[in-house]
Simulated assay, not measured.
Amino acid sequence: MNIKLDKFVLAILVAIVVAYFFPQWGIATSPIPLDTISAVGIALIFFLYGLKLSPQKLKAGLGNYKLHLLVQACTFLVFPLVVLLFRPLVQNAEHELLWLSFFFLAALPSTVSSSVVMVSIAKGNIPAAIFNASISGIIGIVITPLWMGLFIDDMQTDFDFTEIYMKLVLQILAPVILGLLLQRFWGGFIQKHTKKLTLFDKSIILLIIYKSFATSFTDGVFSGVSLFDLAILVVGVLFLFVLVYMLTGRIATALGFSIEDRITAQFCGTKKSLVHGTVFSKIIFGGMPGLGLVLLPLMLFHASQIMIISAIASRFANREMPNEPAN
């Protein structure tokens, strides 16, 4: 298998290194208004997300309800329930935060762009991938805070559902709806410049990651994290990914899915969105000092899912298709 390190993963590593050596730009007393920049950037990301959503493509994907139910069930039920099984192992406040970071990862929606790209490479069901990846982000606006509210309330006394959903509506849902309303006018233009706009999305995410880690390094959040804990995180994200990937494949096979639908189910149902994760973390966790630690499993998972799925997609891409001549 040919596994390549994604450039965005490298950029994330650079952002963390910069946050370690130059944290002064990301703390509350910084003269650079990173909070304002990231808030505006978040709204623009989801406005552009709305512009890219094609109502016609979404309607075209509605029919395959078994596939959609499987993908969304894996994303919002299987992932959280698997992590929930390990909650009895929590013994102290440090373990609680590490477990919470895994649960946050598990409660997140699927990613859009990489899911569709990988399904396309693997010759899966592309319309269904577009539908599921797109609808997942919208469902996550409601489901993710509900899952997190079950456990954050015990650790964070100022967790307020009303405030959380107001922020989600103003910063995420409203821009998405505005984008959808304007999609007929600007949708074509946005599709032509997707790569350039993706660069903007990633820049905002890197900014949020830098600020989160700068604050965490300044507050000494990682001082209690040993190499053993880090190893547990790496093994944990790999175990979580492989378990859900295999389980999704077994269920898809049992339901009699075609190979194209099974590819889509496994690729979309096992992805977690770094974009939604970094944005949701700012809104749900607020000024929590351990935000960098909360994001760590998500970033490890992001790197793992890209490398593993890209290798699997390449293998599927080389299969002989029914209407293609053998090489």
Score class of each variant (00 low, 15 high):
Leu300Arg: 01
Val279His: 05
Gln191Tyr: 10
Leu58Lys: 04
Ile312Val: 13
Leu168Glu: 01
Pro325Val: 15
Met321His: 06
Ile164Cys: 02
Leu150Glu: 05
Val119Arg: 05
Val234Glu: 01
Ile172Thr: 00
Val142Asp: 00
Phe161Asp: 00
Asp35Trp: 00
Lys57Val: 05
Arg87Phe: 08
Ile263Thr: 14
Ser314Pro: 01
Pro289His: 06
Leu199Asp: 09
Ser120Asp: 10
Leu230Ser: 08
Val294Phe: 07
Met246Cys: 01
Gln191Met: 12
Leu227Thr: 03
Tyr65Asn: 08
Val14Ile: 12
Val18Arg: 01
His95Ala: 08
Ile37Ser: 01
Leu295Trp: 07
Leu150Ser: 09
Ala317Glu: 12
Ile152Gly: 01
Phe228Trp: 08
Leu77Gln: 06
Pro31Leu: 09
Phe131Tyr: 13
Gly179Phe: 02
Trp147Leu: 11
Thr162Trp: 06
Phe22Glu: 09
Leu255Cys: 12
Phe189Tyr: 13
Leu298Val: 10
Gln171Tyr: 11
Glu320Thr: 13
Tyr245Trp: 13
Phe280Lys: 00
Ala128His: 03
Gly277Arg: 04
Arg319His: 13
Ile284Phe: 05
Pro109Lys: 02
Phe189Cys: 05
Thr111Glu: 04
Ala28Ser: 11
Ala93Thr: 15
Ala60Lys: 14
Ala122Asn: 04
Ala174Phe: 15
Phe189Val: 07
Pro325Ala: 15
Val176Ser: 05
Ala265Phe: 12
Val176Cys: 07
Ile283Val: 05
Phe79Met: 11
Leu255Ile: 08
Gly188Arg: 07
Lys211Ser: 07
Phe241Tyr: 09
Ala317Asn: 03
Gln91Ala: 11
Phe22Lys: 08
Phe228Thr: 06
Leu97Ala: 13
Leu300Cys: 12
Leu255Gly: 11
Ile32Val: 14
Gly26Met: 00
Val176Lys: 02
Val117Ile: 15
Glu260Gln: 15
Leu173Asn: 05
Asn318Ile: 04
Val117Pro: 04
Gln56Val: 09
